[in-house]
């Protein structure tokens, strides 16, 4: 294991991407906290929208990428591990962003609805997604060879694609029977003026760039981890062989 200490997961392209991410986030902060007006009915709390909606979008994007990359690992004959690492990296970032979405959503819900949580289809499905992908990440850490990990987690990611519509549908059917909780507004949707809509779109673009940046780095770090494991195994084999010779 003579890996160069200067090794890094960054390249000029990812550095540019990183700069773009930081600039984009600064723009979201500027527009979201300073330049946009407060909402007529929700007041200042509407600013949470600029964090809540983009992180939710990125989380869903991330899980879609995980499913797609898992299929690309499982179905072609080559079983390229690169797709599996992309799936894993994307799921990690997705879980992070979904945690932010849920946290901000609960705070926002408390302010606008008066409750942290409502058992409606959208919220409940989101919570299920979150738990499902925490399980997915746990399966990735079960150990074994990278190929075992890739196959196990790949099947799980595709099962999640089966499961999520079922959960969403059943929760929707279930909630249809019940009255909605008493809330200030029946829906979280907001009337957006031009500047607010622009800020929201800016948020979506900025957070998508952040997502891409994080996933590329994580994917490279995961590749390095797999290589390190492999190298470690080779070294161990050589050491045992030498022990046997002595």
């Amino acid at each position: 294991m003579s890996g160069a200490p200067t090794a890094t997961t960054a390249t000029p392209a990812t550095r540019l991407l990183g700069i773009a991410a930081v600039v984009g986030l600064a723009g979201v902060v500027l527009f979201g906290l300073v330049l946009t007006p407060a909402d007529q009915s929700q007041g200042e709390s509407v600013r949470m929208l600029y964090l809540h909606a983009p992180t939710a979008w990125v989380a869903y994007l991330a899980f879609a990428v995980t499913a797609l990359a898992s299929a690309l690992y499982l179905f072609p004959k080559q079983h390229a591990l690169g797709w599996d690492r992309l799936a894993g990296a994307s799921a990690e970032v997705g879980v992070l962003f979904m945690a932010i979405t849920l946290f901000v959503g609960m705070l926002w819900g408390r302010l606008t609805w008066g409750v942290f949580w409502r058992w409606d289809a959208r919220l409940t499905t989101t919570a299920f997604l979150f738990v499902t992908y925490i399980g997915y990440l746990a399966v990735r850490r079960l150990g074994g060879t990278p190929d075992q990990r890739a196959r196990r987690s790949g099947v799980l990611a595709l099962l999640a694609v089966l499961e999520i519509p079922l959960v969403h549908f059943s929760v929707k059917l279930w909630r249809g029977l019940h009255q909605d909780a008493t809330v200030l507004r029946p829906d979280g949707d907001v009337e957006l003026d031009g500047l607010m809509l622009f800020t929201l779109l800016l948020g979506i673009v900025a957070f998508t760039v952040v997502y891409a940046w994080l996933v590329i780095h994580r994917q490279r770090a995961l590749t390095a981890e797999d290589l390190l494991d492999e190298a470690g195994l080779d070294v161990a084999i050589v050491e045992r062989q030498q022990e046997a010779l002595v």
């Binding site: 738990v131 499902t132 746990a138 399966v139 150990g143 196990r152 059943s170």
Partner: peptide, 25 residues
């Protein structure tokens, strides 16, 4: 899925319980 892996006893509830939610409902 969890067979043969270390730590699977604790992993199974985390994987299985969310999935069976539609059956519970």
């Amino acid at each position: 899925l969890a067979a043969g892996a270390r730590g699977r006893e604790t992993l199974l509830p985390l994987l299985l319980l969310p999935v069976v939610a539609p059956v519970l409902i």
